[in-house]
């Protein structure tokens, strides 16, 4: 089921000026993010805006929090879903 069929619980904001392709968020959110060819996180099936504000389902929230906590570059923040 995609995040669009279900109301997203949060958005994972990625600050591209900070992200350095360390990849730990990609491992933690394996169902949502994949590495692009340079190792940067990318959300398949999402539109351009959603690449920087990836909608997360409720069951992805915990992994999202871990990703925010562990990102070595502090590039990630959780935001309220777009209404």
């Amino acid at each position: 089921m995609s995040a669009r069929e279900q109301a997203p619980a949060a958005r994972l904001h990625i600050d591209w000026t900070r992200c350095d392709a360390r990849g730990s968020c990609i491992e933690l959110l394996a169902g949502r993010l994949v590495a692009d060819e340079w190792g940067y996180p990318s959300a398949p099936g999402m539109n351009a805006a959603e690449q920087s504000d990836v909608p997360l389902r409720a069951d992805e929230l915990d992994a999202g929090r871990d990703a925010v906590e562990l990102c070595p570059r502090l590039a990630l923040t959780l935001r309220a879903p777009r209404s």
Partner: peptide, 18 residues
């Protein structure tokens, strides 16, 4: 810069340009 993480590269080139 570390090498690419193992995984599928994103298929849609428009996303990368954006």
């Amino acid at each position: 810069t570390p090498p690419p993480t193992a995984g599928r590269p994103s298929s849609d080139p428009r996303l990368v340009q954006n």
